[in-house]
Measured scan of single mutants.
Amino acid sequence: NNDALSPAIRRLLAEHNLDASAIKGTGVGGRLTREDVEKHLAKA
C-alpha cells in the first residue's frame, strides 16, 4: 500500500525502479524503512 510510504521512501523506490511489495518492511506496522530498501539493494 503506497499510502503508508514516506515521500523519501517513495523517491528511493522510484530512483531504483523497485516495487514496494517486493520488500519486507521492518518498521512500525510493517512499514518500509530506508534500511529495508538499502538492504534489498545490497542483495540485488
Results as ranks from 00 to 15, higher is better:
residue 21 S to V: 07
residue 26 T to W: 03
residue 19 D to R: 07
residue 29 G to I: 03
residue 5 L to M: 09
residue 18 L to S: 02
residue 10 R to D: 11
residue 12 L to W: 07
residue 19 D to Q: 11
residue 15 E to W: 13
residue 28 V to I: 14
residue 2 N to W: 05
residue 29 G to T: 03
residue 14 A to C: 05
residue 14 A to L: 12
residue 1 N to E: 14
residue 1 N to F: 09
residue 12 L to C: 09
residue 15 E to I: 14
residue 1 N to M: 13
residue 41 L to C: 04
residue 14 A to Y: 09
residue 37 V to K: 00
residue 23 I to H: 00
residue 13 L to F: 05
residue 4 A to H: 14
residue 21 S to I: 07
residue 43 K to S: 14
residue 39 K to N: 14
residue 7 P to E: 15
residue 23 I to M: 07
residue 30 G to T: 03
residue 23 I to L: 11
residue 35 E to Y: 10
residue 27 G to I: 02
residue 6 S to A: 08
residue 1 N to D: 15
residue 22 A to I: 09
residue 41 L to H: 06
residue 33 T to E: 04
residue 23 I to A: 01
residue 33 T to H: 02
residue 38 E to C: 09
residue 13 L to S: 00
residue 36 D to Y: 00
residue 10 R to G: 07
residue 34 R to Y: 15
residue 10 R to T: 09
residue 29 G to V: 02
residue 37 V to D: 00
residue 16 H to I: 04
residue 41 L to M: 06
residue 1 N to A: 14
residue 32 L to K: 02
residue 37 V to G: 01
residue 20 A to S: 07
residue 43 K to Y: 11
residue 24 K to G: 05
residue 43 K to V: 10
residue 23 I to F: 04
residue 4 A to L: 13
residue 8 A to R: 08
residue 25 G to A: 10
residue 31 R to Y: 06
residue 4 A to R: 13
residue 23 I to K: 00
residue 19 D to C: 12
residue 43 K to L: 15
residue 32 L to C: 00
residue 34 R to K: 13
residue 6 S to C: 06
residue 2 N to G: 12
residue 36 D to P: 00
residue 5 L to N: 05
residue 22 A to G: 06
residue 11 R to E: 15
residue 26 T to N: 03
residue 19 D to I: 09
residue 5 L to T: 06
residue 38 E to I: 15
residue 31 R to Q: 12
residue 12 L to K: 04
residue 31 R to K: 11
residue 14 A to V: 07
residue 41 L to A: 05
residue 39 K to P: 04
residue 16 H to F: 11
residue 35 E to G: 09
residue 17 N to G: 15
residue 30 G to A: 04
residue 5 L to I: 13
residue 15 E to V: 11
residue 20 A to W: 07
residue 8 A to W: 08
residue 13 L to D: 00
residue 38 E to R: 08
residue 6 S to G: 08
residue 38 E to Y: 14
residue 31 R to M: 13
residue 3 D to K: 09
residue 4 A to I: 13
residue 21 S to Y: 06
residue 42 A to G: 08
residue 1 N to H: 14
residue 38 E to P: 00
residue 10 R to W: 08
residue 41 L to T: 03
residue 10 R to Y: 08
residue 20 A to F: 06
residue 29 G to M: 06
residue 39 K to E: 11
residue 33 T to V: 05
residue 30 G to V: 01
residue 20 A to I: 09
residue 44 A to W: 14
residue 38 E to K: 08
residue 8 A to L: 09
residue 39 K to I: 10
residue 25 G to S: 05
residue 12 L to H: 05
residue 1 N to T: 14
residue 32 L to I: 15
residue 42 A to Q: 13
residue 20 A to P: 14
residue 8 A to D: 15
residue 21 S to Q: 11
residue 14 A to H: 08
residue 44 A to M: 15
residue 2 N to E: 14
residue 16 H to G: 04
residue 20 A to Q: 07
residue 29 G to Q: 07
residue 9 I to N: 01
residue 16 H to S: 04
residue 17 N to C: 10
residue 1 N to G: 13
residue 4 A to S: 12
residue 21 S to W: 09
residue 13 L to M: 05
residue 28 V to Q: 11
residue 43 K to A: 14
residue 43 K to E: 13
residue 18 L to T: 05
residue 24 K to I: 12
residue 16 H to R: 04
residue 42 A to T: 08
residue 12 L to F: 07
residue 28 V to P: 15
residue 3 D to C: 08
residue 27 G to T: 02
residue 38 E to A: 08
residue 32 L to E: 00
residue 27 G to D: 03
residue 27 G to V: 01
residue 30 G to W: 01
residue 21 S to L: 07
residue 27 G to M: 02
residue 28 V to W: 10
residue 39 K to W: 11
residue 39 K to Y: 10
residue 14 A to G: 05
residue 10 R to I: 15
residue 19 D to G: 04
residue 7 P to H: 11
residue 17 N to P: 01
residue 26 T to H: 05
residue 18 L to A: 04
residue 4 A to G: 13
residue 10 R to V: 14
residue 2 N to R: 09
residue 3 D to N: 11
residue 26 T to D: 02
residue 16 H to E: 02
residue 7 P to I: 11
residue 1 N to K: 07
residue 30 G to H: 04
residue 24 K to W: 07
residue 13 L to H: 00
residue 7 P to W: 05
residue 2 N to C: 07
residue 10 R to L: 15
residue 12 L to Q: 05
residue 37 V to I: 14
residue 15 E to M: 15
residue 32 L to T: 04
residue 11 R to D: 15
residue 41 L to R: 02
residue 3 D to R: 08
residue 31 R to D: 05
residue 11 R to F: 14
residue 6 S to P: 12
residue 8 A to I: 09
residue 31 R to S: 13
residue 36 D to F: 00
residue 34 R to L: 15
residue 28 V to D: 11
residue 26 T to V: 03
residue 12 L to I: 06
residue 22 A to R: 09
residue 2 N to M: 12
residue 3 D to Y: 03
residue 19 D to P: 08
residue 25 G to Q: 03
residue 22 A to M: 14
residue 27 G to L: 03
residue 21 S to G: 11
residue 17 N to R: 07
residue 43 K to M: 14
residue 39 K to M: 12
residue 12 L to N: 01
residue 38 E to F: 14
residue 30 G to L: 02
residue 3 D to V: 10
residue 35 E to I: 08
residue 17 N to Y: 06
residue 18 L to H: 02
residue 32 L to D: 00
residue 39 K to F: 10
residue 34 R to Q: 13
residue 12 L to Y: 05
residue 17 N to S: 07
residue 43 K to Q: 14
residue 19 D to F: 06
residue 2 N to V: 14
residue 44 A to P: 13
residue 14 A to Q: 12
residue 20 A to K: 05
residue 19 D to K: 09
residue 10 R to F: 07
residue 39 K to H: 10
residue 29 G to K: 06
residue 16 H to Q: 03
residue 20 A to N: 03
residue 19 D to N: 11
residue 36 D to G: 00
residue 28 V to E: 14
residue 36 D to V: 00
residue 12 L to A: 06
residue 36 D to N: 02
residue 11 R to Y: 13
residue 30 G to E: 04
residue 33 T to Y: 01
residue 9 I to M: 06
residue 21 S to F: 08
residue 8 A to F: 08
residue 16 H to Y: 12
residue 20 A to H: 06
residue 3 D to M: 10
residue 33 T to C: 03
residue 42 A to R: 11
residue 23 I to G: 01
residue 22 A to K: 12
residue 31 R to T: 13
residue 4 A to W: 15
residue 29 G to R: 06
residue 17 N to W: 05
residue 42 A to I: 11
residue 26 T to C: 01
residue 38 E to M: 14
residue 5 L to K: 03
residue 28 V to F: 11
residue 1 N to I: 13
residue 13 L to V: 04
residue 33 T to F: 01
residue 39 K to C: 12
residue 5 L to W: 05
residue 27 G to E: 02
residue 10 R to S: 07
residue 11 R to S: 11
residue 3 D to W: 02
residue 42 A to C: 06
residue 20 A to R: 06
residue 3 D to S: 10
residue 29 G to D: 12
residue 25 G to K: 05
residue 33 T to R: 06
residue 20 A to V: 09
residue 42 A to L: 13
residue 14 A to I: 10
residue 33 T to P: 00
residue 4 A to V: 12
residue 42 A to N: 10
residue 18 L to Y: 03
residue 35 E to L: 10
residue 35 E to D: 10
residue 20 A to G: 06
residue 26 T to M: 03
residue 30 G to N: 05
residue 33 T to W: 01
residue 7 P to D: 15
residue 4 A to C: 07
residue 29 G to F: 06
residue 35 E to S: 09
residue 3 D to I: 11
residue 13 L to R: 00
residue 30 G to D: 05
residue 25 G to P: 09
residue 15 E to A: 14
residue 1 N to Q: 14
residue 33 T to D: 02
residue 30 G to Y: 02
residue 42 A to H: 09
residue 6 S to W: 08
residue 19 D to T: 11
residue 14 A to N: 08
residue 25 G to R: 05
residue 7 P to C: 09
residue 31 R to P: 02
residue 17 N to M: 08
residue 28 V to H: 11
residue 11 R to L: 15
residue 22 A to V: 11
residue 16 H to K: 04
residue 44 A to V: 15
residue 44 A to C: 06
residue 36 D to S: 00
residue 11 R to K: 15
residue 16 H to A: 06
residue 3 D to T: 12
residue 22 A to Q: 14
residue 24 K to Q: 14
residue 29 G to N: 12
residue 37 V to T: 01
residue 22 A to L: 13
residue 9 I to L: 13
residue 30 G to F: 02
residue 18 L to K: 01
residue 11 R to A: 15
residue 27 G to A: 04
residue 26 T to R: 03
residue 6 S to N: 07
residue 24 K to T: 13
residue 23 I to P: 01
residue 32 L to H: 02
residue 42 A to M: 13
residue 1 N to W: 12
residue 32 L to W: 04
residue 31 R to V: 13
residue 13 L to Y: 02
residue 12 L to S: 03
residue 7 P to V: 10
residue 12 L to E: 04
residue 38 E to W: 13
residue 7 P to F: 05
residue 15 E to P: 01
residue 31 R to E: 09
residue 9 I to F: 04
residue 44 A to H: 13
residue 14 A to M: 11
residue 15 E to R: 13
residue 14 A to F: 10
residue 24 K to F: 08
residue 43 K to P: 06
residue 18 L to M: 07
residue 13 L to N: 00
residue 12 L to P: 02
residue 31 R to W: 05
residue 2 N to K: 12
residue 33 T to N: 03
residue 42 A to Y: 09
residue 31 R to A: 15
residue 29 G to Y: 05
residue 8 A to T: 08
residue 3 D to F: 04
residue 23 I to E: 00
residue 4 A to D: 15
residue 35 E to Q: 11
residue 24 K to H: 10
residue 9 I to V: 11
residue 28 V to C: 06
residue 26 T to Y: 02
residue 30 G to I: 02
residue 13 L to I: 07
residue 25 G to V: 04
residue 4 A to P: 11
residue 35 E to K: 09
residue 12 L to D: 02
residue 1 N to C: 05
residue 22 A to W: 10
residue 34 R to M: 15
residue 10 R to M: 12
residue 19 D to W: 06
residue 37 V to A: 04
residue 17 N to V: 04
residue 34 R to I: 15
residue 13 L to W: 02
residue 24 K to N: 08
residue 12 L to M: 08
residue 15 E to Y: 14
residue 14 A to K: 13
residue 32 L to Y: 02
residue 11 R to M: 11
residue 14 A to T: 08
residue 3 D to A: 10
residue 9 I to D: 05
residue 8 A to M: 07
residue 4 A to F: 14
residue 1 N to Y: 07
residue 3 D to G: 11
residue 41 L to K: 01
